[in-house]
Design a protein around this nucleic acid. Structure first.
Lengths: 251, 251
DNA sequence: CGGACAAACTTCCCTAGACCAGTAGGGTAG
DNA sequence: CTACCCTACTGGTCTAGGGAAGTTTGTCCG
């Protein structure tokens, strides 16, 4: 029962991370099973010759990763994998769309009069002027996403041409239109292509589609932009892992 | 410029949380804009009369929430809302399905011979015996999800009757079939109802559907169960928020 | 036998420093 | 003018404790 991996003080991996990894590995190896109590903080301090703060931080990492749960006054317990803890990350999709071989082609960019739906989303009056931008996202020569977006029209801040460039994707994902935005709300749902979308993407109307809707607000909590990405659903799925992944996981 | 909210030592909210909240509010209020540098740790220590560790913890929370980003040697900076940081949580859906007014009705539970697809998913030979369970999840009297699941058949561990009870949903989401599972992989994709699914749910075949597929592994990294939830897509969407939500957010 | 209480645990949060490492700016030697 | 280095400032990590608060257990007393 000798601790094979105590703590390597010369490693680049800081002690708290080594400790967190070690505990994780022991759980993955079955040394601690779901429901079991981990050694107390004091015991871990002694066993690994680190200070309480270091132990607390290591445990904190595991708590955040939903691997263990702490109960005040009772102890720290190993959690079974929880379906409810699952969350699907948009990061991979966004990084893919922001990659160099994906380009955005502007189909249309003009000032239009807000229809009822746009007016409601942007909290403006119907008929007010808004900027309409329609983009096609292509990977190589193949269209993968259709993007339609409406921005509130502010005469004081004329439409920046740079935002319309094909390189705007970068900003679109990292800092969306300058940095005057406070927060955004995203909604993912499944739908079917409309006529317009289908023709632009070269698909049949009614084909299964993902719709990712985004609504961004400025620092006065007023809607600033509203738009949606539409793409074929059968080419994209979201995958995630709960619990402690096996050895070859990580993509 | 007097700090109105220093730190209330008598509050139930611990200082690190008060500090994190205060900084968050200042960002939300526009005092610090995206790209701005926050006061340094030392300055925050002095301004709020707390120790460095407390400041670090507060900042750590904000980093984790993707509100700020720290750069070693340079400072801590406010992040604009990032699309790539978005993740869709299954928690709400799971809590909804686990609520008391949702019940699971067993349609079928028997031992079958593994077909090619099941055999591949469970890493077994085709023709081996597996347990097949089909459930209907009802809210009130209305079916909302169809659940099909295959478990490896282990004669040593006979099928627990409790797992088949209509109350099994609880376990299904929190600890899935005892606690012998190490991790699970979940995949979400959009699809259309098959004949079987449609008839069970009282829908038309071809209707848009969500499919949530789950594959659980035991502590030897062997697949233990594989199954999928299928439900109407037009009644369910996933919503999330990036950046700092406005005042009335939080559902 | 039963209930109150105290001790011994546990986690939680904090202090007040220390040293290391990365960055930026200014001054100096070439 | 350029290249270099030195210094001040930044976050990153850790130490070695402390007191507060929740839980469990066992003991003592009625």
């Amino acid at each position: 029962m000798k601790d094979r991996p105590p703590i390597d003080r010369d490693s680049f991996e800081p002690p708290y991370a080594q400790l967190a990894r070690t505990i994780r590995e022991r759980i993955a190896g079955g040394a601690y099973r779901p429901g079991d109590r981990l050694p107390s903080e004091a015991e871990l301090c002694a066993a690994f010759s680190v200070s309480p703060m270091t132990v607390r931080r290591a445990i904190g990492e595991l708590v955040r990763a939903d691997v263990v749960v702490t109960e005040h006054g009772r102890g720290t317990f190993v959690k079974p994998p929880q379906l409810a803890a699952a969350s699907f990350d948009l990061g991979d999709l966004m990084r893919y769309l922001a990659s160099p071989d994906v380009e955005a082609r502007i189909l249309e960019a003009r000032i239009v009069s807000a229809g009822p739906r746009v007016a409601e989303k942007l909290a403006r009056e119907e008929g007010e002027r808004v900027i309409s931008i329609k983009r096609l996202l292509l990977r190589g020569d193949e269209p993968v996403f259709y993007h339609s977006e409406y921005l509130v029209f502010d005469p004081a801040r004329p439409l920046v041409e740079a935002e319309l460039a094909t390189t705007a994707l970068q900003d679109l994902f990292s800092g969306a239109h300058g940095s005057d935005l406070k927060f955004g709300r995203l909604t993912l749902h499944a739908s079917a292509f409309t006529e317009t979308e289908a023709s632009q993407l070269g698909e049949q109307p009614g084909t299964l589609a993902w719709v990712l809707e985004h609504l961004f607000f400025d620092f006065d909590d007023r809607p600033e932009s509203w738009g949606r990405f539409v793409g074929r659903a059968d080419r994209l799925s979201f995958t995630t892992t709960v619990g402690i992944p096996g050895p070859q996981e990580g993509v």
